[in-house]
């Protein structure tokens, strides 16, 4: 088929991210800590500057140490606080896209980090997360993941208009420990079995009384 084609509107040449640094954060809260996943994707126009920040000796090949140093720099820009109490962020695993992919605006730096939470009371708490890394030219996504633990329930999320800052209201709930649950189940099973024995013990007597009553004169049909 012969195509006669024209783009309508303001089509731009393949509009992959150009002059923005996309920083996507996902936070998973459990009773003991917070897992933070960061995906950092520099646009084409920013790639060389970011690569230069990573490849400090300018040898064209970022080393593992240089990558780890950059990830530490990223974490240095994070603020995490629970109930107003600032908490340190520990670096976990990192994964860097190659420089060519970053130069095309599609290479992502993945950083995993964690925060250890202090012992918190059952009830309402608030986690505040702020990303100050590379504030100029960055766009942000920040989201709470649905907690895997039944002991945690997210009740609200609030953000600033750019999503640099995310405040998560959550509840810490009393969830029976597995051993408690097992104990309760065992108790229930034992009580059920005892009931069965009691019924079995009582039932023959009841049946016998009924039989005797039926043998009384006047009650026979």
């Amino acid at each position: 088929m012969t195509l006669t084609i024209a783009i309508v509107g303001s089509a731009q040449p393949s509009a992959h991210r150009v002059d923005e640094y996309l920083q996507a954060s996902r936070l998973a809260i459990d009773p003991r800590g917070v897992q933070i996943e960061l995906d950092l994707t520099p646009g084409i126009a920013l790639a060389e500057a970011i690569i230069a920040e990573i490849d400090r000796n300018r040898d064209g090949s970022p080393s593992a140490d240089e990558q780890r140093a950059y990830a530490s720099l990223v974490l240095h820009g994070l603020e995490v606080a629970v109930d107003g109490r600032p908490l340190p962020v520990q670096l976990g695993s990192i994964r860097f896209a190659d420089n060519d992919a970053m130069r095309r605006g599609e290479g992502t730096i993945q950083v995993q980090a964690s925060v250890t939470l202090p012992d918190l009371d059952i009830g309402a708490h608030q986690l505040r997360f702020r990303n100050n890394h590379h504030p100029h030219g960055s766009v942000y996504l920040a989201n709470a993941l649905v907690p895997e633990s039944d002991a945690v329930g997210v009740t609200a999320q609030r953000r600033d208009p750019d999503q640099r800052e995310l405040t998560i209201d959550y509840e810490l709930r009393a969830v029976p420990a597995p051993s408690t649950v097992a104990w309760l189940l065992a108790s229930f099973a034992a009580a059920s079995m005892l009931s069965v024995f009691l019924i079995a013990a009582v039932h023959p007597v009841t049946a016998l009384k009924t039989w005797r009553a039926r043998r009384k004169p006047g009650l026979l049909r």
Partner: peptide, 23 residues
């Protein structure tokens, strides 16, 4: 209406198995 800008997919490629808190 969310009071903030969302500039890209949150659960795009590579985000298998993650569930974000609904809003």
């Amino acid at each position: 209406v969310l009071g903030y800008r969302v500039s890209d997919l949150v659960l795009g490629p590579g985000q298998d198995g993650r569930t974000i808190q609904p809003e």
